[in-house]
């Protein structure tokens, strides 16, 4: 019997959950078709489909879906998960909540394989059983698949915590290679924290290969995924009143809180990549900016959309890195002067 074919668009939550999806779907005996890396054509298609006010990651999602439909006409399903709540008291952005509803009304769409995660109402294992039902699997079989996928995903997460770059790890997952850390490069003396959603940071087309530009300038980059788990344990309370209720933003705020307090000397600056019209980030970035001013950490917010020009971004990064270098030199100079004074 032929395996069922399921298409996965390489956008949005792909950069966060792909190892989990891959494992659970493979355990459910399904053939996975991935859309290619984001390219100009995909972005163009997506921009045509979505109207102006949508954020660029959503448009790219449209593009990937359309690409899958045109290139693979024999798809049985297209995998569009609905992530509502992954932990008890945090949502995702409203656009994730309505993702299958927005996709299923596109023309010529094959059946949608829905995977609804809503921990507020039911555990994830239940979602896995529902997923299995759509593929015609028994309850015990889908639970088994879920457990294996969960283990695998935990391995993947701990691999990231050891310091593996996300794109590298995703490549290993995609090629079914066991996890192994890449060769250690020499450490640079500038370390930046790179904030933002996975789909902005790791989609190398839309952010114009941002991380490479940084590493070309001898800058080490740290992302939230590489940070130890202890940082993410206590929830963030904004202004002593409001408990933050967005999952991604919660992680960003927790990371920032760590670097504002204990980890102040571990990094030299923060760069926040925001996609234009991103709702949650617009408020979070404001709070972070105000915190940064108090502590005195260099902070750069880069807003990107489908029109981002390479030269402009390069200039901004260069000047930011130069500024940090000069600041470091200044501090060092001061330090040496004081040292020499003591000798005299």
């Amino acid at each position: 019997m032929n395996k069922l074919k399921v298409g996965i668009p390489r956008a949005l939550h792909f950069y966060r959950y792909f190892p989990f999806w891959k494992k659970i779907l493979e355990e459910m005996d399904v053939e996975i078709v991935l859309s290619p890396l984001t390219n100009k054509k995909i972005v163009e298609k997506g921009v045509q489909q979505g109207f102006g006010e949508l954020c660029i990651p959503m448009k790219i999602y449209y593009g990937h879906v359309l690409n899958l439909i045109t290139n693979h006409q024999d798809l049985d399903f297209i995998f569009v998960p609905r992530y509502i709540a992954e932990v008890k008291d945090a949502y995702f952005c409203p656009k994730f909540l309505s993702l299958p509803d927005v996709i299923k009304i596109l023309p010529n769409i094959p059946k949608i394989l829905n995977f609804e995660v809503n921990v507020k109402e039911f555990p994830i294992s239940y979602s896995a059983v529902e997923l299995g039902k759509q593929l015609g699997l028994s309850r015990s079989r889908s639970l088994e698949a879920y457990n294996r996928a969960k283990n695998y995903y935990n391995q993947y997460l701990s691999f990231l915590k050891e310091g593996a770059p996300v794109n590298y790890a995703l490549r290993l997952v995609n090629r079914n290679i066991p996890f192994k850390l890449p060769k250690q490069k020499t450490q640079n003396d500038i370390r930046l924290l790179l904030l933002g959603h996975g789909y902005n940071l790791f989609d190398t087309f839309i952010n114009l290969d941002f991380q490479k530009k940084l590493s070309d300038r001898q800058v080490d980059v740290l992302t939230i995924e590489n940070m130890p788990e202890s940082v993410f344990k206590t929830p963030v309370i904004v202004n002593n009143k409001l408990r933050n209720y967005w999952r991604h933003e919660e992680e960003i705020m927790q990371a920032i809180r760590y670097f504002l307090t204990e980890g102040r000397n571990e990094i030299d600056g923060v760069i926040f990549l925001i996609s234009f019209a991103c709702g949650p980030d617009s408020l979070i970035s404001e709070l972070i900016m105000r915190d940064m001013k108090v502590v005195g950490l260099p902070y750069l917010a880069i807003i990107m959309d489908e029109h981002s020009g390479e030269a402009g971004m390069l200039t901004r990064i260069e000047s930011f890195v130069d500024m940090i270098k000069r600041k470091k030199k200044k501090i060092e100079l001061k330090f040496q002067q004081e040292k020499s004074k003591i000798k005299v």
């Binding site: 945090a90 904004v238 202004n239 408020l283």
Partner: peptide, 22 residues
Amino acid sequence: AIDCGPCRFGFYASVQERILRD
């Protein structure tokens, strides 16, 4: 008024307080 998400409105009070104080 504040809300519990998922839209941006829940953040208004906190961020506005911060901005007004600053």
